[in-house]
Amino acid sequence: MADILQMKGLTKTFGGVIAVNELDLEIQEGELTAIIGPNGAGKTTLFNLIAGVFPPTSGQIIFHGQDLAGTNDYQRARMGIARTFQDVRLFGNMSVLDNVMVGLHSRSKYGILSAAFRLPQGHREEDNIRLTAINTLNLVGLGRRADINASELTFGQQKLVSIARALATKPRIIMLDEPAAGSNVLETQEISDLAKRILEMEITVILVEHDMRFVMGTAERIVVLDGGEKIADGTPSQVQNDRRVIVAYLGEQEDEI
């Protein structure tokens, strides 16, 4: 399969602190990759680099053969790179459905004039936006909660809405930042199933997660970062048996427990 995303010598430093160091990584189209690593390993920084929140200090990111240098976050979202946030960031004063409809903003185009004078083009697009949003919301199982305020949902439900919102942008790749954090066992299973369903929609999935059971049960490939560097890369069973991983990450976690 072709690479959808390639990182070459990707480096990001914040005032002398190296968050991501000379990272070379390819993500294959249609694959579900998990990125794991201890806190401060550079996982979220990597997501932010791919999403275009800030530019890398050096190195390249190539998406579908196209160098992403010089594009920013909203442009990359339009190119098909979607993401969720660790701290969710729903639009708290809007309904659940509206949250997802915002995701369709860049996939619709009627402008301020059509809106102001209720021109037919706007009407047609708006109907489509609503329908698509409801379908997307049903996909994450929250269709019945469409009309309530997003801030009234449980944390786990908010995470699901944020995934639906990202899916609404019709991405080719979606990055989920700790989708299972703060969820109970049942919800974690739902999110795992959801991730696989997203894959069936021909959307490549990358996720960052601390919950090892979730990662082992969901991901096809696991990349382990430590100190901004890739220390292991392989199938769940390969990674589980990798000595460096056990030392750097799993070992540390067992110590904590």
Partner: peptide, 22 residues
């Protein structure tokens, strides 16, 4: 309208709005 939704989204979270292509 769609513009109004984008406006409220910006008010609530600018970074999330950007991440959705706004």
């Amino acid at each position: 309208s769609r513009i109004g939704r984008a406006m409220r989204a910006i008010r609530d979270s600018e970074s999330a709005s950007q991440s959705l292509g706004i």
